[in-house]
Design a protein around this nucleic acid. Structure first.
Lengths: 137, 137
DNA sequence: TTTGAAAATGAAAACCGTTTTCAAATTCGA
DNA sequence: TCGAATTTGAAAACGGTTTTCATTTTCAAA
């Protein structure tokens, strides 16, 4: 939270971390990034990864997710600020699928008009089980 | 997580805790319950509250919510396992409003048929700003 | 009412992920 | 090349939660 605010200098560590993160298609923990980089022979500290992850989160590149058991995981995000968008979050594998759907728009409009609730278009989350996990079980 | 599994004996502490919790209409932290009970002159330990909250959560009476900054809060829940239900969660005041709406049902059906995603009917959360908070600001 | 096994309690210690500290190393414009 | 600003990371601190374990309480059966 009170790490360095700037990302003015390029460093070996930052580059390694941001590159690995940008390849992640699933949720990951800070420790996962650390473990993988160490496994690859990189030499860096856990603290640095916390700092970069925090910066990326503030920059909107990562979504921070804290599950009910307290585990903190991050999801690399492409931009998607438009309306009619929601997240389908699989509670089994942690994948966060983006879905565009006219019904989402209808729902948020309705909820605003009838329930007086202004939905945050970037924060509509439908938890459940994804196709892959349904088929695997 | 590994507290006592049973709630076989009635105790003064348990009764105080569950009674106070059942009066909560907004999200609360474990420490809030502790502070209020101490303020009222009750004599009990923080550990006991953690245990009771955990039991109530496993029993489905409480929803555990962990915000992005890691703060853990609970919401007292009445039963609502039926279809066409969603939560409207206000990110300002923490209130969790229950909403029933035919469009929710349409959306979950659609998401299942077209996106292959089986939604958990008890876990559809629309984050945003509630009527009260909109008017106050 | 007494008894005692099971359950519950809570203070203190342990735990663990995260943050802060701070001295040393690195970056990069001048 | 120089040096001020930035970055790094090991270690310590932090803080919420869980575990430990000795003591207390509950309540059914005698």
């Amino acid at each position: 939270m009170h790490y360095n605010k700037n990302m003015t200098y390029n460093t070996r560590q930052k580059n390694s971390i941001t590159e690995l993160i940008s390849e992640q298609s699933q949720e990951f923990a800070v420790k996962d990034i650390y473990n993988e980089l160490i496994r690859r022979g990189e030499d860096l500290g856990l603290t640095t990864i916390y700092r970069v992850v925090d910066e990326l989160t503030e920059a909107g590149k990562l979504r921070k997710n804290v599950s009910a058991d307290g585990a903190v995981r991050y999801q690399y995000l492409a931009d998607c600020n438009h309306l009619g968008h929601c997240y389908l979050k699989c509670q089994h594998c942690g994948r966060l699928k983006h879905a565009d759907c006219h019904l989402v728009r209808q729902l948020t409009d309705h909820v605003r008009d009838e329930h007086g609730f202004q939905a945050d278009e970037k924060q509509i989350i439908i938890n459940g089980t994804c196709e892959r996990c349904i088929n695997e079980n």
